[in-house]
Design a protein around this nucleic acid. Structure first.
Lengths: 218, 218
DNA sequence: AAATAACTGGTACTGCCGTACCAATCTGAG
DNA sequence: CTCAGATTGGTACGGCAGTACCAGTTATTT
């Protein structure tokens, strides 16, 4: 039942998935019951079991969707910010190895990173939180583990790419260090909702970008 | 009902708390029901509602206990390892500012850190996971937030102290950077259970300790 | 010893959950 | 047009949850 045969079915499945993502953000996975999802999607209860083998299956699919959306948003916000700064006019982000010279200040790069990674309002904060809840769940549910690994791998790749775009190309070790630190700071911001989260991340990351020797990773 | 008046009551409360911590590790908080806790503690069901206002209250208390234990274990493992290395014979870890000279190699310090932070077996992995689950829950439950903040604050303080002991005294920004990175890497290890987690953390942290200029934080 | 408070343990209430089931309806391929 | 397969929606079942309740017992205070 992974892909419904009929067009209407596919749309219904997507509707359910959207509802699940919403609920996941609003209340964590306790809020994602068949009944709640069906109500939110304005579909009958049985639709949820028809399009998804089980609740776990539905949640896994929602996780996948949220990861896709999250990465897309991060990348888009970062590049939009860079573009707005007019830093590199004709610099193409070729995936291979064309390293952009460090045209940006460490502070500007850190600000772009923080703006791209941190949630902007309460809704986004809760969505982020849900993503991490899902990620942690993979620690107990082997079925979710591949998705979790894919998320971190894609996050690292994105981090590497963003750093390169900003003119701070980094080796694997430095990417992991900065990525893990960004993760840690993001979780902290998302969970504790301290008021100065953005400023804090900017400070830490610009500190790191300033002082660390990035290349020659392990 | 925070502190039972009678001795037996206090013991019973502790028994319940221990049971809750065990269950939390084994199955996350879905596994922590009044009934499960009471069964595990070999106490009648009503004992749980007698000693704790509610399930949330019980879980919060268990969180507090787990944090205490976790920090104690981390610190103890780290110092034990340092002591075993016989690095500094008469070096007292005075809490003020007595900076130990970098006697250890970055690699040795990173190894001690990884050994202190990362879980050693599956049981510990699950306990760690539970701790993070609890932490994340604070993102939705304001009652848990002070505990969450206390945990990160104490973690940072411990990180700073361990670094100083190892001969790598660091300013606030560097401590936050390294602490957040350690958090990120720990979560990754705990959730994804990749085989090379220890080696990976050692590499990243020693890379960081080697290359970053630690002092002069924000 | 008497009175008051702490504690015990058994039971019951109410509610939501995941999932199964199935008759009715719709849709697209032949 | 026909019909098999896809889809729909309503309902039901069995289970476990949190918490309330209360008669009985034990400890502490006066």
């Amino acid at each position: 039942m992974r892909q419904p045969a009929q067009e209407r079915g596919r749309r219904r499945r997507d509707t359910l998935l959207d509802a699940a993502v919403e609920l996941l953000g609003e209340g964590g996975f306790d809020a994602v019951s068949h009944r709640a999802v069906a109500d939110r999607a304005r579909l009958p209860l049985a639709a949820t079991t028809y399009y998804f083998r089980s609740r776990d299956d539905l949640i896994a699919a929602a996780f996948e969707l949220m990861v896709d959306r999250d990465l897309a948003v991060t990348r888009e916000r970062f590049t939009a910010r860079i573009r707005r700064l007019g830093a590199a006019a004709g610099d193409r982000p070729a995936p291979a190895g064309g390293a952009a010279a460090p045209r940006m200040s460490a502070r500007a790069a850190a600000e772009a990173l923080a703006a791209a990674l941190l949630p902007r309002d309460e809704t986004e904060r809760l969505r982020h939180l849900a993503l991490w809840e899902l990620y942690l769940r993979a620690g107990r549910d082997p079925a979710l583990r591949p998705l979790a690994r894919a998320w971190t791998d894609r996050c690292r790749a994105t981090t590497a790419e963003l750093l390169r775009i900003a003119g701070y190309p980094a080796g694997p070790a430095a990417v992991t260090l900065l990525g893990a630190a960004a993760d840690g700071l993001t979780i902290e911001a998302v969970v504790e909702a301290r008021p100065n989260a953005v400023q804090s991340m900017v400070e830490i990351m610009s500190h790191a970008l300033d002082r660390i020797r990035m290349t020659e990773g392990a």
